[in-house]
Write a protein that binds this DNA or RNA. Structure first.
Lengths: 230, 230
DNA sequence: CCAAAAGTGTTCACGCTACACCCATGC
DNA sequence: GCATGGGTGTAGCGTGAACACTTTTGG
């Protein structure tokens, strides 16, 4: 073989899975089901196989525990410290996923000992997984300012208040309701539906849906999604 | 071994090396010196070794061709398409480096058949290296807006006009000299030296130096480097 | 009528833009 | 003195921040 004098490595994929529920941003963790560190809290992970790309491996691993396919998934970075896994040299590629937490398969979660944690509840994680989570959080904060990825965490129909709660959870600060509303509606990416959510107020709040076609049309004519000023 | 039933992979590191010279942003490429595709233009690359991290491998590879150490280096992403290297399955971790092109070892470059290219001269590259370059360019554009990494591409002393030329090269558009100057000087990150560069004008332009200590001091008291509005 | 959340109006300040203008110097 | 790049002044506009205000409806 051409490269036969070169070293080979185990390659893992570890997924940071974000969800949004009850106005809180959450993280899906599971109890590791193989040695070493079996039974400890960990990110969803697995090893890359010869016949798949890293993106494919990440999707496979995500589907295994949540039962979900076609999830927003993005590569974070490679983690390669020499002793990050004390059992053997493993290079891990971190990913993060955004899921609308209403849709995941509750049974699957139970079966794999998976559980949602808010950020102040996160337990000690194995290896360098805490670092991977921190990187994912940083990336989410950055990315959410310039790409309309927040919608991945919401149901397809939502009120402006829900949308604001989401961004408040991501940035961990309060946002002015009046200004937030104007900012988002001004972008003209949302369709207002002829339906009101009557569960959270007497007046009722209109439901909106993200319109991807509008987003792409605006983008190709120079518009840039930009929440830097919120 | 714990993971002995898992697949192993060759891991490569490929470096996109940026330089700035003659008011132009350039890329350092070299003629690949091993099979397959020997003699074709390629990014600087090499294989990860068992006893080093990816960052260490990237530094090693960079030093091998340029002779330079302590270079700004940042991981981009992993590239894992099944046939990206037709000879064998290789996962590559892309890096990009910023170097002050006055400092590199010219002999080394010659010895390795390396050459600087402006962006409109870039030849066809092997494998997916063109994609890696595109990713690096995108990242540089983004990163340069929120981190003071531009200075890595300049000599330690520079005029405001040189600095503007650099940002004009990165963003491929003209910037208003007056506003650019005010913006940067207003950040209070630059020390004005009591020296004028007399090579480019009759009046002469003061030389400035980036003051990292000031940057860190400001940063820790809430300042954020931000060139979004240029 | 009142409470509470939805949604609108308005003012202010700051920062970017555009461009006019002055400065220093070698020829 | 004039051409050239360095550098300053400034008016206008757009946008975010703050917060007062109106709307709707169930109790």
């Amino acid at each position: 073989m051409t490269y036969s004098n070169k070293d080979k490595f185990y390659l893992a994929v570890d997924c940071v899975i974000f969800g949004f529920d009850n106005d809180q941003l959450k993280l899906l963790l599971y109890k590791r089901d193989f040695e070493p560190e079996i039974g400890k809290w960990s990110l969803m992970g697995g090893f890359l196989k010869t016949n798949e790309t890293l993106d494919e491996a990440a999707s496979r691993i995500l589907a295994r525990i949540t039962g979900l396919r076609d999830i927003y998934l993005e590569q974070l970075s490679a983690f390669s410290e020499l002793n990050r896994d004390p059992a053997d040299r493993v290079i891990s590629i971190g990913y993060y996923a955004l899921i609308n937490s209403k849709e995941y398969s509750a049974e699957m979660l139970k079966q794999y000992g998976a559980k949602w944690f808010t950020f102040d509840e996160i337990p000690k994680l194995i290896f360098d997984h805490t670092e991977i989570v921190n990187r994912a959080m940083k990336r989410l904060k950055r990315k959410a300012k310039t790409q309309p990825i927040g919608f991945e965490l919401l149901p397809s129909q939502f009120t402006i208040t829900q949308l604001r709660n989401l961004y408040e959870a991501i940035y961990q600060r309060e946002l002015d309701p009046a200004n937030f509303r104007r900012k988002f509606i001004g972008m003209k990416l949302l369709d207002r539906l002829p339906i009101k959510d009557m569960n959270h107020s007497r007046k009722g709040a209109f439901l909106y849906a993200f319109n991807k076609n509008k987003y792409e049309a605006h983008t190709s004519s120079g518009f840039a999604f930009d929440l830097n000023g919120i």
